[in-house]
Simulated assay, not measured.
Amino acid sequence: MTEQTQELVHNYSENGITTLTLNQPEKKNSLSMAMLEALSEELAIIASDSETRVVVLAAHGNVFCAGHDLREVREQFDSHEFQLALFNQCSKVMQQIVNLP
């Protein structure tokens, strides 16, 4: 797990239950590219962990997740490559969740 992943997503496992906690409450835990990459990394680890039987998605702060980081999207508005990469990464994370064993 990278340092950035530890900052954005906390992973806690006990008795076969893994809790992934989004940890950017000051940004309403929005799905920035960095958050999506951190989630993807954690989900890949969990997918290969035979001890994990249940995954709980949680969040620090008073908002679970505001959706995509619109500030980041707006800043990269003219970058078709970024927009495509962002939505591909988002699709990857959603598929990782659906395909967890």
Rank of each mutant, 00 (worst) to 15 (best):
P101M: 04
E3W: 03
I97F: 09
L36W: 15
L20Q: 04
K92N: 12
R71H: 09
N15Y: 14
L22D: 02
H68S: 10
A66K: 11
V55L: 07
S40E: 15
F87C: 04
A85W: 06
M94C: 10
T21K: 01
N62H: 09
S50P: 05
E26W: 06
N62R: 11
E81T: 08
A59N: 07
F77N: 09
F64N: 07
L84K: 12
E7N: 08
F82M: 06
Y12H: 14
L31I: 06
N99C: 04
N99F: 05
E37P: 05
V9L: 07
A59K: 06
F82D: 01
N88W: 12
F77D: 09
L22A: 03
E7G: 06
F87Y: 10
N88S: 15
I97K: 03
S40V: 07
K28L: 10
A85K: 13
A44W: 03
A58F: 02
F82S: 04
D69V: 01
L84Q: 14
N99A: 12
V93C: 02
F64S: 10
P101N: 06
A44I: 10
N11K: 14
C90A: 14
E42R: 15
L36R: 12
Y12P: 00
E7W: 07
F64Q: 12
G61N: 03
A85C: 11
R71E: 13
C65G: 01
A59I: 07
C65P: 01
L8I: 00
V93Y: 01
R53W: 01
H60T: 11
N23A: 05
N15V: 05
L22T: 04
L39K: 07
Q76S: 09
L100A: 01
Q96K: 02
A47F: 03
Q96E: 06
